[in-house]
Amino acid sequence: MELKFVATKKPVAVDVVTQRRQRLIRRIDQQISLTKSATEGMLSRTSWAWTDENGAYFLPIKYGRNSIELQKGMFAIQCDCIEDVGQGLTAIRAMVLQGEFDTQLQKASTEIRSKFSKK
């Protein structure tokens, strides 16, 4: 391996938008690993995905404890099987990295912070 030297330093403060994205990406990565283990058995209690009485899986994307709005009025993704849940998480992860959910993350972050403000 050849070393590639660059003239850059770690920023003192990370951009807030980047922090939100990274926080959500870490949780999505955790959910992907839970989904992989769920293919061998039952879903974990900490899994975001849930099933209805017909066996369809639903996958909300959560920031904190709140589900974020993925599209206007839509808070979950419907999947046919547990493998589709993993693929959905991977697709959402790519969308988060591209910044497609920045406004939803900002709204969710504001709502969470408002609960801690002094009244």
Rank of each mutant, 00 (worst) to 15 (best):
L34D: 06
D15N: 08
K115V: 10
S47Y: 14
Q19C: 13
E69Y: 07
D29L: 02
E40A: 15
A91E: 05
F101E: 04
F75S: 10
G55D: 11
Q78G: 15
Q22I: 04
L59I: 00
D52K: 12
K36N: 11
R26L: 04
S117M: 12
I92H: 00
G88C: 05
T51A: 09
T18K: 10
D102G: 00
I82H: 00
F101W: 12
F75P: 02
S33L: 10
L105N: 03
K72P: 08
K107V: 14
G55F: 06
G88S: 06
I77L: 04
K62Y: 06
T110N: 14
S114W: 05
F101D: 02
F75W: 12
T8D: 10
C81R: 15
I61S: 01
R23T: 14
I25N: 13
T103M: 15
E53Y: 13
D15R: 03
P11Q: 03
K107Q: 12
S37P: 08
R21K: 01
F58D: 07
T51S: 10
S47F: 06
S47V: 08
A38R: 11
S114D: 07
V17C: 03
L34V: 05
R113Y: 09
G99V: 01
S109N: 09
M95G: 06
V14I: 08
A91I: 02
D102Q: 00
W48E: 02
D102M: 00
A38W: 04
P60V: 14
R93P: 01
E111Q: 12
L24M: 01
L43K: 09
A7H: 07
L89Y: 01
G41C: 14
I61E: 01
Y57Q: 07
R113N: 05
A76V: 15
R27Y: 06
L24C: 02
V16C: 14
V17A: 03
I112Q: 09
S109G: 04
G41H: 07
S44I: 08
T51R: 15
A7F: 13
E40H: 03
T46D: 13
S117I: 12
T39R: 06
N66K: 12
K62P: 04
G55K: 04
D84Q: 07
S37E: 14
G41E: 13
T46W: 11
L43D: 03
G99Q: 07
D15L: 03
W50V: 13
C79H: 11
G73D: 11
V12S: 12
E100T: 06
